[in-house]
Design a protein around this nucleic acid. Structure first.
Length: 461
DNA sequence: GCGGATCAC
DNA sequence: TATGGTGATCCGC
């Protein structure tokens, strides 16, 4: 089943999960075309390296599993002890299961593309997408040609020569998003917007107060969103956020699906669910699990002892197989922020003056963001990507938090210099962590950067 | 604390 | 001509 020397798992990595269904869904030619366009590019070679690294990691995990299992073979006392320990952990998780909440995951249908369609009705029925060098969102007609979000635009054009690619208008999307979120807030004043086009809503209290059925509430909610925006939304209804998110896909577009708050229903739902559907399990973890004989969440439970031997900590997987998830919908608070960064891609160059220019821009923008957010930071990370697409980073923690463009640049330039002469770069950026909240810092001001000077001193210790 | 890797959107 | 940007988390050291 190889595509001329390209392993199936790499094909999936390059073409997306839908490549798996190639042949069944009828379009092997899409996969062929993507490989044809990609092969030989630096991007493709980097994906090959990543694929090989993942393969080595899989081999290590399997070796670890085998070593543990050799010491405690299936059915031995050691095995049974491990199994009992896992079962106790699972029982504790199970005991805390809360089925009392009714949570929605609202997900706009092809959001960016749908907004563009509103602005320009002549796009109706056409193959079009929003994006620049990569596709953000594609119309359903474009998707039929194999165009996917995250795909390089030149690849998308190769699949679909008549594809219309529009620049994103993020200020417009933001306006729409605000309108949508305001509608959702009529049902829960504590919604959790996960992005411009997605939000969790807890409708438990709303249903109780109005003595209405959740299915009817959601039907009405979707109508209100559509009335306010002209856009459609799909909604998943479940007793926790993980399950709601999974099922918001089940009636897309413009539909709703409810997973009952019934332990037996949830159990059988999870049993057959492919692990890739679980938020947090991506392509690599899917491959790892596959090599351990696990394709569905039900199999996580069946193979829990082996998984434990390979991974060590499997709490996340246990929660997934049990269908457990967060039940308290809450938007992240200011102080939950961990980092703030800026990075930019440009034509690969070794020109130091050009690189310094990009670095200066990134530092200035980061300083602006920090000022707007009211943070300073103690650790600065320089990030880069070589022309070969390999990423790297260099970090340094400072004795005092900094926030000014000058101090950031001073530190960043030093980090770049420490990297020595390097091959051409195609991206450079900076990220601040160890954030200090300037609006709450009060008497702790001594941790902060001196107002105007002190840059060089920060490095002496 | 650092650097790489993975994941989501 | 040539595959993005922002933020989070986890692991191994």
């Amino acid at each position: 089943m190889d595509n001329v020397g390209v392993p199936q798992s790499l094909t999936r990595q390059l073409c997306g999960p839908s490549a798996l269904k190639a042949g069944v869904s009828g379009d092997d030619s899409v996969v062929q075309r993507i490989l044809e366009v990609s092969r030989g590019s630096l991007y493709f070679e980097n994906e090959q390296r990543r694929h090989e690294r993942a393969s080595r990691r899989i081999a290590e995990l399997l070796a670890r599993r085998d070593a543990v299992l050799q010491a405690a073979p299936r059915g031995s006392a050691g095995w049974r002890a491990t199994e009992a320990e896992i079962d106790r952990a699972a029982a504790a998780m199970e005991a805390s299961r809360d089925l009392s909440r009714t949570i929605l995951h609202c997900d706009m249908d092809m959001f960016f593309a749908a907004v563009e369609l509103r602005s320009d009705p002549s796009l109706e029925g056409k193959k079009f997408a929003v994006g620049s060098s990569v596709i953000s969102t594609a119309s359903y007609e474009a998707r039929a040609s194999g165009v996917r979000s995250g795909m390089g635009t030149h690849v998308a054009k190769a699949l679909c020569p008549e594809l219309i690619v529009l620049d994103g208008r993020y200020d417009v999307y933001q306006q729409y998003s605000k309108t949508i979120m305001d509608v959702l807030r009529k049902y829960d004043d504590n919604i959790y917007p996960r992005s411009l086009d997605e939000a969790f809503v807890d409708v438990t209290d709303y249903c109780e107060r109005h003595q209405v059925d959740v299915d009817d509430v959601v039907t009405e909610l979707r109508k209100r969103v559509t009335d306010a925006t002209g856009l459609t939304v799909s909604v998943g209804i479940a007793p926790n956020m993980m399950l709601a998110k999974i099922v918001s896909d089940y009636r897309k577009p413009n539909g709703q699906y409810r997973l009952p708050a019934d332990p037996e229903v949830i159990r059988s739902f999870m049993a057959e669910l492919p692990v890739r559907k679980v938020p947090g399990i991506g392509g690599v973890t899917e491959r790892v699990l596959e090599s351990l004989g696990v394709a569905t969440c039900g199999e996580i439970w069946e193979r829990r002892v082996e998984l434990r031997a390979a991974f060590g900590n499997i709490d996340m997987l246990l929660r997934a197989t049990l269908g457990l998830g967060e039940t308290r919908v809450k938007p992240p608070a200011r102080h939950d922020r961990r980092s703030c960064g800026r990075e930019r891609t440009f034509p690969p160059t070794t020109d130091v003056a050009v690189l310094h220019g990009h670095l200066r821009d990134a530092c200035r923008m980061l300083a602006e963001d920090l000022a707007e957010l009211g943070f300073a930071g103690r650790t600065l990370t320089l990030v880069g990507k070589r022309a070969s697409f390999q990423r790297f980073s260099r970090a340094r923690s400072l004795p005092a938090a900094i926030a000014s463009a000058e101090a950031i640049y001073e530190a960043a330039e030093r980090l770049l210099h420490e990297c020595g002469t390097r091959p051409a770069l195609r991206l450079i950026g900076v990220r601040m962590t160890g954030l200090v909240d300037l609006r709450r810092v009060g008497p702790l001001a001594q941790w902060l950067e001196a107002p105007k000077f002190g840059d060089a001193k920060l490095w002496s210790q």
